[in-house]
């Protein structure tokens, strides 16, 4: 009797674990499938020339250099804009603001900002940066728009990193007769910088793949010249894929699109990997 019961329980356990295992396998499988699909279709065209040459012959041949560079400028610009803003906002929210209703409202607002569809940011960028500030369709407008897209990510990551710094450090410093700002500068920020950097890098990974926010603000279908100033329009990897596929005049363009996707995917995965490595590295040090 007892034994039967035991066997039954074991069987049930096994069944549940199997189901859970299968679900996990499915998720990983789908991811693997995507990567395999993209790589198998696109890896053939990726070589050094593909990365370092201008597109030629009506974008049916040649490389993706301008899109690669354009993405690089846009992402760098967005981080330069969003990181300081996000970090300072997070410092204010965690260290200075009263734990009041207003702060809760602001936090809810920031979280909601993260959920806004990215095309809406694109429209916002168009009306504010392109039109109102008259920056035109440019790297500047695109960077600022992308910056706003990742601002919530950076604020939340920074907030969490700051809150993870034990209060003991703050108290120890304040008890030495050191001002709050000096305490933040000398103890809290250094201790939270790995978390903040990780957040920023994850943000970079996200905006590198964003298409909608730059369609109206920065990206151009094709340009023969590399950008020379922040007021130039630029090509970008995700939009380049979109352009290649939708233009659809030549069947030669489809492998090029997959090749571009391979590069983009590779970049995003690498960036996330770096973020993970940094986090693990500092995680170990702080233990």
């Amino acid at each position: 009797m007892k034994n039967n019961n035991l066997q039954y329980r074991h069987l049930k356990e096994k069944f549940v674990f199997s189901i859970l295992g299968l679900t996990l396998l499915a998720a990983v499988g789908i991811l693997g499938l995507i990567i395999y699909f993209i790589f198998s279709k696109g890896i053939g065209v990726v070589d050094l020339e593909f990365l370092t040459q201008m597109p030629t012959n009506g974008m049916t041949e040649g490389g993706i250099l301008p899109a690669l560079l354009g993405s690089f400028y846009l992402v760098s610009g967005s981080i330069l804009f969003a990181a300081p803003l996000g970090v300072f906002a997070a410092i204010y929210m965690t260290e200075y603001a009263d734990k009041s209703k207003t702060l809760r409202m602001i936090r809810i607002g920031v979280n909601n900002l993260a959920g806004v569809p990215s095309v809406v940011f694109g429209l916002f960028g168009l009306s504010v940066f392109v039109k109102f500030f008259n920056f035109g369709v440019s790297i500047l407008s695109g960077s600022l728009t992308l910056g706003i897209v990742i601002l919530p990510t950076i604020i939340r990551a920074s907030e969490e990193a700051l809150m993870a710094v034990p209060d003991e450090y703050r108290h120890a410093s304040l008890a030495l007769g050191i001002t709050k700002w000096e305490t933040i500068k000398r103890v809290v920020l250094p201790a939270s910088i790995p978390g903040i950097i990780t957040g920023c890098i994850l943000g970079v990974g996200r905006v590198a793949g964003e298409t909608a926010p730059i369609i109206f603000t920065a990206a151009t279908f094709y340009t023969a010249n590399l950008p020379t100033s922040v007021f130039d329009e630029a090509m970008a990897l995700p939009y380049h894929i979109y352009a290649l596929v939708t233009a659809g005049t030549s069947p030669k363009q489809v492998p090029l699109a997959y090749g571009t996707a391979v590069v983009l995917l590779f970049l995003v995965i690498s960036i996330n990997l770096v973020a993970t490595l940094i986090r693990n590295h500092y995680g170990r040090l702080n233990d």
């Binding site: 034990p166 003991e168 450090y169 108290h171 120890a172 410093s173 008890a175 030495l176 103890v187 201790a191 040090l285 702080n286």
Partner: peptide, 11 residues
């Protein structure tokens, strides 16, 4: 000056 219950050196 103050010394706390748990040792709390900075990292």
């Amino acid at each position: 000056g103050m010394v706390f219950q748990e040792p709390n050196p900075f990292p």
